[in-house]
Every structure is written in C-alpha cells, then in structure tokens.
Design a protein around this nucleic acid. Structure first.
Lengths: 218, 218
DNA sequence: AAGGAGCCGAACCGTACGGTACGGTACGCA
DNA sequence: TGCGTACCGTACCGTACGGTTCGGCTCCTT
C-alpha cells in the first residue's frame, strides 16, 4: 500500500525536502529496498542499481550513506499529511468518533511497512552515533500525528468534554491504551498484518477506556 | 548497574543455558561490547579480544555469529528472576502496592541498557531472517514478566478486587498505561535515564488509572 | 613420561561494502 | 558545430568482517 501510493504524494515528499523529482524517485526505490530486505539490502551499489542511477550521483546528491538515509526519512515524512480536524461544534459523540478515527490512523501508520522499516533502521543506528536518526524520525514522523492528537484533546477540553491536567500526559495515556506493545512486537518481526487485525478492534475499546478516565462526568 | 550485577546471578544465567562459567564470562563481555557500541561493535574478533579467548573457541561453542547472539539472549534472560507474588490475603491496598511494584520493575527492565541493546539488535535483525531473534527475545524476556503480571491480575480477580474479561487484554491495558511510548523512545536513542526519571512518577498514576478501569466497584 | 584434549593467538581467505575515479553519452546552449 | 553540464555504468581501492586453519601452550589422564 505504502509503495503503491499516488504519484502526487511522492512529488510532495520530494518537494517538501527540496529535491528534484528524479532524486525523489531514487529515494522511493531506496525505501523499497529497505522495506524488502532491511538495512543489509540498503547498499549504495544496490540503490544505484535499483534506481538506474550511478553511485557518483548518489554521493553528489546525498553526501554519503547516512545522508541518503536522512534524506529517505525526511522524504517519507514529507508524504504524510495530517488531516486537519474540523473545528466545528464538538459533541460527545463526534469527539468519540474523532478519537476512534485517530486511533485507527495511528495503528495504520505504525503498522505501515515503510514506517516499520525506517524505525528499525533508526533503532539499529541508535546505539552508535548518538540519536541523530532517532531524533529525526521522532521529529518528522511522530510530531505530526501527536500534534493532531493534541489539537483534538485541546478541543475536547475547550468543549468541556474532556478533563485533564497535562495534554501531553493525556496523550501518553491515549497512546498507551491504543498501542500497548503492538508497535514493539511488530518491530521485532511479528506478522504486522496479523497484529493489526488483532489490535484494530481494540481501538474502540481503547478510546472508551480513555473517555472513562478523562471524559467529563455526565 | 546491569553490568555490575552480582556474580551469582551471572552464574545462574550460565547454568540456565547449560554453559560453563567460562562461556558465561565470554557472553558477559560480549554483552558489554554490545551495550557499549551497538551491533557494529559485536564482531567475532572483538569479542575474542575482549574476552581473551580465541575465535576458534567462539565457533566451537556457539556455532556462528547468530548462535553467539542467541546464546547472549538466553544467557541474559537466564539472569532475570521473577519475584513470586506472595499468594497471601490480597486487599485492595496490597494489590495496588503489588501493581505499583510491578510497574516500577517493568520500567527498570525496559530501561536497562542490556535490555535496550538486545532489543535494538533483535529489531535490527528482524527485517532479514524472519523473526527468529525477536521471537526468542519475546519468549525468554517478556514472557517472564508478563507471567508475573498475569498471576497478579488473576489473583486480583479471584479476590474480587479486579474485573475483566480477558486477562491478556487487561495486561495489555496495564502495559500501555505504564509504558506508553517510553520504550520506543529509548530504543530510538533518547536518554534512557532521563526518560526513566520522567516515567517513574507516572507508575503510580498508571496503576490508579488501571484500577479505575478494572477495579471492582467499591 | 607420553599422549591427547582444550584452548589461545595469529595468520589467512573470500567476500562485501563504502567511497572514488574514469570513460562514455545525452542534452542544452552559444 | 563546438562546448559544458549532468549523468550513467563500470572498474577500482582500501577496509572490515565472518569463518577457517595452524602452531604452540597448558593441563589432565593413563
């Protein structure tokens, strides 16, 4: 799915990172290699062969292998477009609907194969050079979706439908209720599709649990 | 801390895996290398040098590099001893205490540097060869602590202090409330000590939230 | 005392990878 | 038509790693 996404989104990803279409296409192939074979498959020669470009161009465009990886992350992050929550009147029912939609989207994102591959890559590199890639991934990927949740929670509080002290903490609770250990298990190689099927029905329950904890009494 | 643990525990780890003390010591050094420098530092030559043994012995004992890694995981898992919950009378207060202790232990385990290093390693390998290491890590590491939680939850239900349909699902809820995205962030390289400090105070709140959701009305 | 098992240290081999250099080609521009 | 630019494909280099082999040492058994 992620791979077969529309051309427009890919172009947006390239544009967002200030890259030419050609370079975006190369990054797309590189992401394909990464998804297919993990970090071991992400060799400069392999990317060049898969993308029909020369290693020389790779090094000219991205500096070195780490630069290529960073570009892959920002490129992929540029494709994600967060849905703006309609700031219309918020009732208990629409809030619940929005929260459930958010939960499903979150599960979708986390179980996407490109997302999993990039997270695995960043985690693998996290041990050696500081947290460079990890921070980048966190910043460009997670930030977006957490912003959306924060806006939703804040709107719920404004409408007197939610009660919490810290929005961050409330988001942490919501995230934990939805995701639990699903993400880690997928990262460790458990069948992502099966896990997604197992966890999706729980999205509704997770939201209801969250509302039990933080919903305004009434 | 993990590295400086007592000699007895290390011997238990070796014995549990059917290894000699010498082999356990080698694995200990290997874990040290892994913690210090990530997967890249875990070379056969490096382990041999650090442990003052020959590569020949490494291959005789562990077969190949993957065998060495598997041995490291089982060895490390063998050191973990789950505390048996005293099956004495369970009151609402002692149950809460036990749950909080469990939450703190869980955070301790997940933020341990050896645990983080092994999880990073397994996640890095998850993409290529199936989920071999991931399953092993899940089986030997997570199983133990989840067993403890399951026993605790079941005892709580028996004592009419907890109410839930599925123990697994309730455990998932408890886990999510405690851990949220802390584990992933640590795996991605965020300062583990700082995150632990940030999340430890939340253990109590997480347990209280869990009791709000699944505690018997009283 | 003789022999063997186990082990260390070092050298060795094949391979694979990151990075560089070079020859050749298509295309835009003066 | 000539020239510069950007690019491809390939060959190349140095290094590092997994795995094997071998000589020599120690200790244990008989």
């Amino acid at each position: 799915m992620d791979i077969l996404q529309g051309f427009e989104q890919a172009k947006a990803g390239a544009a967002a990172a200030g890259l030419t279409e050609r370079q975006g296409a190369v990054l797309e192939r590189a992401l394909g290699l990464l998804v297919e074979g993990g970090e071991r498959a992400l060799t400069t020669a392999g990317v060049a062969r898969a993308a029909n470009c020369s290693k020389e161009s790779l090094y000219k465009w991205f500096g070195d292998r780490d630069g290529l990886i960073s570009a892959m992350i920002t490129y992929q992050a540029g494709k994600v477009r967060t849905v703006e929550v309609s700031a219309g009147a918020l009732t208990a029912e629409t809030l619940r609907k929005h929260l459930i939609a958010f939960a499903c989207d979150l599960i979708d994102v986390l179980s996407g194969d490109v997302s999993l591959a990039l997270n695995r890559l960043a985690i693998g590199q996290a041990s050696r050079e500081g947290a460079g890639l990890g921070r980048l991934l966190q910043e460009r990927g997670r930030r977006q979706i957490s912003k959306r949740a924060a806006a939703l929670l804040e709107a719920g509080r404004k409408a007197k439908l939610l009660a919490f002290d810290s929005a961050d903490e409330a988001y942490g609770t919501l995230y934990g209720l939805i995701v639990s250990d699903m993400h880690l298990r997928m990262l460790l190689g458990e069948n992502a599709a099966a896990l997604k099927k197992e966890f999706s029905p729980r999205a509704e329950k997770a939201v209801d649990a969250f509302l039990t904890l933080h919903g305004a009494k009434g």
